[in-house]
């Protein structure tokens, strides 16, 4: 089976975000960027499935600037076979390429590549949209298995266990399908230096949104980006007794 794995280059999850002084967005200059953590989980799952012989080819896709090639090389060092970069310099967090446009791009690529399934992150940690996988599934008329913590590939179908509010739900999906990953699906491997060297030789095709005939005009305009209300720390209490006293008599919450 062939699998397509969309991966996004985002601000590293350890970075403390700073809002720009003119409130137009957040500071991304000279900030560490990495693969969206949920996408790393998607890449890992695809590789695991290749290791057990169920998947034969892993194609990673990213929509982003030249620099997005870095995260694609990381995915290839982990074990992905080749990559397609859809080049754009538009913003990826907000005011630029939005989830619907990403989903349309991915649909065009699915039409070209005909994968048996797509596995991707449930959420980008920059825009926190949690939309693209579901939208892609709708555009393709495919089934969707979102927030996956377990994926069992069968014959013409895939069983996906989903992290939902009430616990763990299992659904059976007809293939082809779109799967989006949650944190418990697996633990992504670390890449080793020799693999990074090998990954440099893997094929990375570059195309443009125009090649795919997808319109990136945003539907949402950014009015402003601001700091959230700051919550200042309160006091330290010296003992459990003092804590109980404060909660009872000062905060009056118990």
């Amino acid at each position: 089976m062939k699998v397509l794995v969309p991966i996004k280059r985002v601000i590293d999850y350890n970075v403390k975000v700073r809002v720009k002084a003119d409130n137009s967005g957040v500071e991304l200059n000279n900030v560490k960027m990495s693969m969206n953590p949920f996408d790393e989980i998607a890449v890992e799952e695809a590789i695991k499935l290749k290791e057990v012989g169920k998947v034969t080819e892993i194609v990673v896709v990213s929509i982003g600037p030249d620099k997005a090639a870095d995260v694609m090389r990381t995915a290839m060092a982990m074990g992905a076979d080749r990559g397609i970069l859809v080049k754009t310099d538009a913003a990826l967090d907000l005011g630029g390429v939005e989830p619907l446009a990403v989903a349309k791009t991915l649909k065009a690529l699915v039409d070209k590549e005909s994968p048996d399934f797509v596995i991707m992150g449930k959420q980008s940690i920059d825009d926190d949209s949690n939309q693209t996988g579901q939208m892609l599934a709708a555009l393709l008329g495919w089934a969707q298995g979102t927030f996956a913590s377990k994926v069992v590939l069968g014959d013409g179908k895939v069983d996906v266990t989903r992290e939902v509010d009430g616990g763990l739900e299992t659904v059976s999906l007809k293939l082809p399908a779109v799967i989006t990953t949650d944190l418990r699906l697996n633990e992504p491997r670390y890449v080793k230096l020799p693999d990074i060297m090998k990954a440099k030789k893997k094929e990375l095709e570059e195309i443009t949104p125009e090649d795919l005939d997808v319109d990136y005009t945003p539907r949402l305009t950014v009015v402003s980006v601001s700091e959230p209300p700051v919550r200042s720390g309160g006091v330290k209490v010296a003992s459990v007794d003092e804590l109980i006293d404060k909660l009872k008599n000062e905060a009056k919450v118990i």
Partner: peptide, 20 residues
């Protein structure tokens, strides 16, 4: 998780950019 799962699928069917 219900809304997050189903609404983007609705948005794509209606060709509208969801606001999450």
């Amino acid at each position: 998780t219900f809304g997050k799962n189903v609404m983007p699928r609705v948005a794509a069917l209606l060709d509208t950019q969801q606001i999450s």
